[in-house]
C-alpha cells in the first residue's frame, strides 16, 4: 500500500473541507472493508484518507413518524440487531445478515455499503471501471463476462452494482441524505446510482467532497417485502442475482408492487414492467413467473452470461412469492 495522509475530523463540515474537489486524491474512510482492499491492490491511490468515524452524529439509528433514520456509520452488524429493523423491516434485516461474514459486518457501515466500488474483476485488476486494454479496446464484451450486466449494459459500463442490500432499501422507498460544501441534499435512493459513460464518471451521484450522512426508510405498515439472493456458496460469496420485492396488498391481490434487482445491471434495477405485471393481480406462482419474465424482457446478455437472465427471473419470482406468503413486513 502506498503512503497516505490520515486525517480524523470530528464534524461534518470539517470532513467536507478536508475532501478534495476532484476524485482521486482523497477518500473517505469508514469501515474500510472495501477501501483498504482497493488501496492494497493499487486500484486507487489516495494521498489523503479522511476518517469520518469520529463524527458522532453520523452514528446511530432512530425511529420516528417519518420512519427509520440510519446514520451512515451504522455497522451492518448493528443494523441487523436493531429491534425496530427486525420488527418493521425484517426483509432488510435478512438481507443484511446475508452480507459477507460476521467479521465484515462488524466493521462495514451502511454508508460504505452504498458507496462500495463494483466487484468487476477487470476493475479490481486495475483495468478501469470501463475496462480497456492499452490500445483502448474495451475488454468486457469479448472477455470473461460471466458475472457482468445483463441489463443497462448498452454503454461501456458492463459491471454490476455491488450492494446486496440496496435493492430492498429501494423497494421500501428509502432516501439517501448527503452533505457537501454547498449544503445538504436528499435523493430517492435509486437516484443515487448512475451508469457512468466515461472513465472519469462515477457510478454514484456523489461529488468528490460530499459525504453520505444517512439513509431514511419510510414507515411501511402495510407492505409485505422480501429479499432473495442466488449465490453459489452458502456464505461469504457475491451473489449471481438479487431481487427485492415490496407489495401492498388488497386482499390476495397486489395493490401495488416494487420489484428491484441487484447484480444484473450497473445500477440497482427497478423493474416497472414487473411492477405493472403484478399490480391488481393475485400473487401466485403464475403471476410471479409472469412478473419475472416481464422484469427480464429487455435483458441483453453478453456472450457468457445468458444464464444470469434465468437466475434473475428465478430471484424475482421467489422474492415475490416469499413476500406474498408473508415473509411479512
Amino acid at each position: 500500500m502506498r503512503a497516505f495522509e490520515y486525517v480524523s475530523p470530528n464534524s461534518r463540515a470539517q470532513a467536507v473541507s478536508l475532501l478534495g474537489a476532484a476524485w482521486g486524491n482523497t477518500e473517505i474512510l469508514a469501515g474500510g472493508t472495501d477501501l483498504l482492499a482497493l488501496m492494497k491492490d493499487d486500484v486507487i491511490t489516495p494521498k489523503r484518507l479522511v476518517n469520518i468515524k469520529e463524527i458522532k452524529d453520523l452514528h446511530g439509528v432512530s425511529s420516528s413518524a417519518q420512519g427509520l433514520r440510519i446514520g451512515a456509520l451504522t455497522t451492518l452488524g448493528d443494523l441487523a440487531d436493531y429491534a425496530d429493523v427486525r420488527a418493521h423491516y425484517p426483509a432488510l434485516a435478512e438481507a443484511v445478515m446475508e452480507v459477507a461474514s460476521p467479521q465484515i459486518r462488524n466493521m462495514a457501515t451502511i454508508g460504505g455499503n452504498l458507496c462500495q466500488r463494483p466487484r468487476c474483476w477487470y476493475f479490481r485488476n486495475g483495468l478501469g471501471l470501463l475496462p480497456k486494454d492499452e490500445s483502448g479496446k474495451e475488454l468486457v464484451a469479448d472477455g470473461e463476462n460471466r458475472y457482468h450486466a445483463i441489463l443497462g449494459n448498452e454503454g461501456p459500463a458492463k459491471f454490476v452494482s455491488p450492494s446486496t442490500i440496496v435493492p430492498i432499501l429501494i423497494a421500501y422507498g428509502s432516501k439517501i441524505r448527503l452533505e457537501g460544501p454547498r449544503g445538504k441534499r436528499e435523493l430517492p435512493l435509486e437516484k443515487f446510482f448512475v451508469i457512468p459513460k466515461t472513465e472519469s464518471d462515477r457510478e454514484h451521484d456523489l461529488r468528490p467532497n460530499e459525504i453520505v450522512t444517512e439513509v431514511v426508510i419510510p414507515p411501511v405498515p402495510d407492505v409485505k417485502a422480501a429479499h432473495y439472493e442466488i449465490r453459489q456458496k452458502e456464505a461469504f460469496d457475491w451473489p449471481l442475482a438479487v431481487a427485492a420485492v415490496a407489495l401492498k396488498m388488497n386482499g390476495s391481490n397486489a395493490r401495488s408492487a416494487r420489484v428491484v434487482m441487484g447484480y444484473v445491471a450497473p445500477v440497482p434495477w427497478a423493474s416497472a414492467e414487473a411492477e405493472q405485471a403484478l399490480t391488481g393481480q393475485p400473487v401466485n406462482e403464475a403471476t410471479g413467473q409472469r412478473a419475472a419474465e416481464a422484469a427480464l424482457k429487455n435483458a441483453k446478455p453478453l456472450n457468457h452470461n445468458a444464464y444470469k437472465v434465468q437466475l434473475a427471473r428465478v430471484a424475482v419470482k421467489r422474492a415475490i412469492l416469499r413476500a406474498a406468503s408473508g415473509g411479512a413486513a
Partner: peptide, 13 residues
Amino acid sequence: VMDPGTGRMLNAD
C-alpha cells in the same frame, strides 16, 4: 480464469 484480452488471471484473489 484467464482473460483473453490481457492474458492475465482475473480471479487471483
